[in-house]
């Protein structure tokens, strides 16, 4: 590029002029062999169209191959590359370096989770929460294959579609101060996905899910801070889903309290 540009060649380049660069302060930690985490500074090329993940891949390819981080799709779909960038939980594939000028850019693992290595967190607790909230379809009525598919109208789909956009990136857990204070809280994504299936016309698992969703560690642990919805890179609004869960839970609770016939069913 430089040799093909007569302007650049003619300009008296100052000695040692570096191309534009930006500094990344990267969290490094090997819990098995190191007592405490440290921050390592890397100077990487600055490109207008580079995201933080590009800079991390540059570090791993050219500067330090021992840096560990998760990533896969580079396009905000897989949910692997969620990290804290300058203290905020984001998908690093969508966090442009140009929004953090002049740097340095501090990159850390998602907060509120134990660190496995460098920027990789241990997501076991999150997996358990998803299992506990039964975030899958529990069919209202079993159907044989020859009976055909479960049919749904566009209006029924619209009831829950927004909440299907969750990519399990855990940015909402890193954003949630309630989860940060007490990790027994089921947390935003698992509650929103539980709500997603509760709202599905094909689903009949509401009572089963309520054991966790309507417990003291479920929707009732949430104090509606709303940072989960601000952090969500997919616009899912977990806080809204949790509030819907509170209203539905209250209606069910009052019905069970006031209509004796329903009590056994709701508590079963």
């Amino acid at each position: 590029m430089e040799s093909s540009s007569p302007v650049a060649a003619a300009a008296p380049a100052p000695a040692g002029a570096a191309p534009p660069t930006i500094v990344l302060e990267v969290f490094r930690y090997l819990p098995d062999s190191e007592d405490a985490p440290r921050y390592e500074r890397f100077t990487v090329p600055y490109r207008h169209d580079w995201v933080v993940l590009d800079a991390l891949n540059h570090i791993k390819d050219r500067l330090d191959e021992s840096l560990a981080f998760r990533w896969s799709c580079r396009m905000g779909v897989c949910g692997s590359c969620g990290m804290m960038v300058n203290g905020a939980p984001v998908l690093t594939c969508g966090a442009f370096l140009r929004d953090y000028l002049p740097g340095p850019v501090r990159v850390e693992p998602l907060t509120h989770f134990p660190v496995s290595r460098d920027l990789i967190i241990n997501m076991e607790d999150f997996i358990h929460k998803m299992e506990a909230a039964r975030t899958w379809l529990i069919p209202k009525e079993p159907r044989r294959l020859e009976e055909g598919e479960y049919r749904q109208t566009p209006a029924q789909l619209a009831q829950y579609k927004q909440f299907t956009l969750c990519i399990n990136c855990m940015c909402c857990y890193a954003a949630c101060p309630v989860y940060g204070l007490d990790s027994t809280f089921v947390g935003p994504a698992a509650l929103a996905l539980g709500q997603r299936y509760n709202l599905d016309s094909r689903d009949g698992g509401q009572a089963e899910r309520a054991e966790v969703l309507q417990s003291d560690h479920g929707v009732w642990h949430c104090t509606f801070v709303g940072d989960c919805s601000r952090a969500c890179p997919k616009g899912v609004d977990p806080a809204g889903a949790i509030q819907m869960g509170k209203v539905q839970g209250t209606v069910e609770y009052m019905k069970a309290l006031l209509l004796p016939g329903r009590r056994a069913r709701a508590q079963g």
Binding site: E211, D216, H217, G218, W220, T250, Y253, Q267
Partner: peptide, 15 residues
């Protein structure tokens, strides 16, 4: 996990 009795106070809080 047992279902929470929080709906009583939460509905008063919300109202």
């Amino acid at each position: 996990m047992a279902r929470s009795n929080e709906p009583i106070v939460w509905s008063l809080f919300a109202a």
